[in-house]
């Protein structure tokens, strides 16, 4: 018990003193997840608008599949990326296994269904008359999509934040394709899971506290956005 208490005290000291190792790991986590969220958003916003505004056979099924993939297991994505980029894999020559690039690719695959699904459902929450009004005022297809996204901006933003939240908190994928290499691919979650087993409880606790604070901030922002 005292061991845990002392560990917590040291962990808080590490955070308050802006310990370089803690800050570096937290910063990398944020950077990798922000990058993958941005890339996923750039894919999912236009794709969501296209799927929303077009009628095609199998649309309902496609949306169902996307929604099923919300809870895609991180290790499954990890395995997929591993097989794809490992030396023996089809594009192993790129040599990106155990780099942040592989982690970003994995996270993009992981969170795209969430962002895409929530973008589509945000758009379908917009009154059909909004698109009709835009079209009748001379908007092109692209201009209509932009104004519809704008009308759904709070719900769309909530979807993007959910995606970021999933990216920063997952561990299985980062561990499998990143490898927890110190100073290179070590992130909050991979550090916690590996340092704990090595007995470095203070570092793990400090990072755990930071992760919880990030989760809290995300939730606060999400609540504010959803109340609009």
């Amino acid at each position: 018990m005292t061991e845990l208490w002392e560990g917590l005290v040291t962990a808080v000291k590490l955070i308050i003193s802006l310990d370089p190792e803690v800050m570096e790991i937290a910063g990398r986590s944020l950077a990798i997840s922000a990058t993958s969220s941005t890339i996923a958003a750039l894919i999912c916003l236009p794709l969501g608008a296209v799927i929303h505004s077009n009628k095609f056979p199998g649309k309902r099924t496609l949306i169902n599949i996307v929604q099923t993939l919300f809870s895609l297991p991180t290790v499954a994505v990890g395995l997929f990326v591993f097989v794809l980029f490992s030396r023996a894999g089809p594009i192993g020559g790129l040599d990106i296994m155990f780099t942040p690039v592989a982690m970003v690719i994995g996270q993009v695959i992981l969170i795209s269904p969430i962002m895409l699904g929530l973008t589509i459902s945000a758009l379908s929450g917009v009154d059909k008359a909004i698109a009709d009004t835009a079209i009748s005022l001379g908007a092109s297809g692209l201009q209509t999509a932009v104004i519809t996204l704008r009308e759904a901006r709070f719900a769309v933003l909530a979807g993007l934040i959910m995606g970021f939240g999933r990216a920063i908190s997952e561990v299985g994928l980062s561990l499998m394709v990143g490898g927890n290499i110190a100073g290179f691919t070590r992130t909050i979650t991979t550090a916690i899971s590996l340092e704990t087993s090595k007995g470095d409880l203070e570092l793990a606790l400090a990072l755990g506290i930071i992760l919880i604070v990030i989760a809290l901030v995300i939730n606060l922002v999400l609540n504010r956005v959803q109340q609009r």
Partner: peptide, 28 residues
């Protein structure tokens, strides 16, 4: 269509100022 315009039976406005609403068609 850009030579016509339509006031719908149940008009809706975009979630923005009156000015920007009226400006939309011209911006497009």
């Amino acid at each position: 269509r850009r030579r016509m315009s339509f006031v719908l039976q149940k008009p809706v406005v975009f979630n923005m100022s009156v000015y920007n609403n009226v400006a939309c068609g011209l911006r497009w």
